[in-house]
Design a protein around this nucleic acid. Structure first.
Length: 423
RNA sequence: GCGGCUGUAGCUCAAUGGCAGAGCGCCACACUGUGGAUGUGGAUGUUGUGGGUUCGAAACCCAUCAGCCGCCCCA
């Protein structure tokens, strides 16, 4: 008995309809990236686990990686993120690359997580980074790329928004409250969780962390102050740049955005669907000026972000923004009337292909209703028939499946007639 | 890794311990040279999987797998 082997937990099978969505996202990602002058690149899909041990955080390495020992005895993992590979590849050619470097990538990643809506163990991720510039305008450019993508897929500012903050600003505010430097990470993590917790519980956690009541009050007033960006020279410059980049309506300052990753040093941002059912970030990123030096390269400022395909895919489907799926890339079906005429149908199909038309021929003689039903289900636009009458007169029957109109034309005029219908 | 909910026809779901069903879809025919509409007929299945309780289990119990929700983490 054949045993059914299931797909691995947390993976997705891409039937043609899902593949079309993946390609749609990929196409828009490419267009947004290239419109700002970014070049496509990629890294290996398997990497030494040690690559992530340095900077990615224990959670990611110990609990969320697909680790295994290869036949040579080396510990390797399916890549859980791209940035460490980027840092290595940049560092290796730091002397010969032309900076600033603008690179983007769209490829598969794996994380051993509990799968649920918006989260899979195997997913595709867009990464885009600008290395070698530390200006607010560089930060603004990445945010503008993100906004350009959101706009290009049809998500308007009422539906999707990018929230921005700056870690430098938050640190100066923490300092003003006399929050000790060693508590910054814990306080940041607490800020990160605030939107998911009840206020009283959140207050209690803050006090448990060792904050005084007046520090807590001060922190809450910071997190409620949406004009705080005016105190940051960097953010003032950033918003001025976003204005002339034409994406200001997508971007809002939010002091509650801090992001979990350790390596961010300045601007941080996250995009959310503000009206749908998915409560997860669409994309997230920021400035990470220390990473290159941390992996052994020369110090190099950098800014970038990443977007997974799962959340954006759900949002696009919910919003009805996915283009209608076309079951076949062929727009023309050539029917096969009977056994004696099948070669004529094959020959005509070949002619259509040589004229640049995607065309398929029914693979065997069958009742015409069956063949027409097939063409209809495949959403093809034209059905062509060569029956005994047409064959005897050197003609073909060309039917537009959209209008239902059929014309009999000479064999020589067939290609031109079909081209006219498809135009 | 932890806690909860769910799993029945291709899909959406019904059947609360007593013969496993409906709608949609699918196939055939009406229609031997033409799709969408309509009508008539037909097939759906190891009730996720394995065990247990019971005269009898889709239902109750245990285990396991998967999906979903939450925690953790994050794209």
């Amino acid at each position: 008995m054949a045993t059914k082997i299931q797909a691995v937990k947390g993976t997705r099978e891409f039937y043609p309809e899902q593949m079309a969505l993946r390609n749609f996202i990929n196409d828009k990602v490419r267009a947004a990236s290239e419109s700002f002058g970014y070049t496509e690149w990629d890294a290996p899909f398997i990497e030494p686990i040690a690559l992530y041990a340095a900077k990615s955080g224990e959670e990611l390495v110990k609990k969320q990686s697909f680790v295994f020992t290869d036949r040579g005895g080396d510990e390797v993992t399916l890549r859980p993120e791209l940035t460490p590979s980027l840092a290595r590849m940049i560092a290796a050619k730091q002397g010969e690359l032309t900076f600033p470097v603008r690179w983007w990538s769209f490829g598969p990643f794996w994380r051993y997580e509990q799968p649920q809506k918006g989260r899979a163990r195997e997913f595709f991720q867009w990464n885009i980074d600008l290395l070698g510039a530390d200006s607010s305008e560089a930060d603004a450019e990445l945010i503008a790329v993100a906004a350009t993508f959101l706009r290009s897929v049809g998500l308007d500012p009422a539906r999707a928004a990018i929230f921005v903050n700056d870690r430098r600003l938050m640190i100066s505010q923490f300092d003003a409250l006399s929050i000790p430097p060693e508590k910054r990470i814990e306080v940041s993590n607490l800020v990160d969780r605030r939107s998911k917790m009840e206020e009283s519980k959140w207050d209690a956690s803050a006090l448990e962390l060792g904050l005084t009541q007046s520090q807590l009050d001060g922190l809450k007033s910071i997190l409620g102050n949406y004009d705080l960006w005016k105190e940051s020279a960097e953010l003032v410059r950033l918003f001025a740049a976003l204005d002339v980049l034409g994406v200001k309506e997508y971007v809002k300052f939010d002091p509650n955005i801090v992001r979990g990753l350790l390596y961010y040093t300045g601007t941080v941002f996250e995009a959310f669907d503000v009206s749908g059912s998915v409560r997860r970030a669409i994309l997230g990123g920021g400035r990470y000026d220390n990473l290159l030096a941390d992996v052994g390269g020369q110090p190099l400022p950098a800014v970038g972000f990443a977007m997974g395909d799962v959340v954006i895919g759900i949002i696009l489907q919910e919003a009805g923004l996915v283009p209608e799926f076309s079951p076949s890339p062929a727009s023309v079906l050539v029917t096969v009337f009977d056994d004696s005429l099948r070669l004529q149908s094959l020959a005509l199909t070949t002619e259509l292909r040589r004229a640049g038309i995607n065309a398929m021929v029914y693979p065997e003689p069958a009742k015409l209703p069956k063949q027409f039903k097939f063409a209809d289900k495949m959403k093809m636009k034209v059905a062509v028939t060569i029956g005994p009458d047409e064959a005897a007169n050197g003609q073909v029957a060309v039917k537009s499946l959209r209008t239902g109109e059929q014309v009999i034309v000479t064999r020589e005029a067939a290609v031109g007639t079909i081209q006219k219908i498809l135009a």
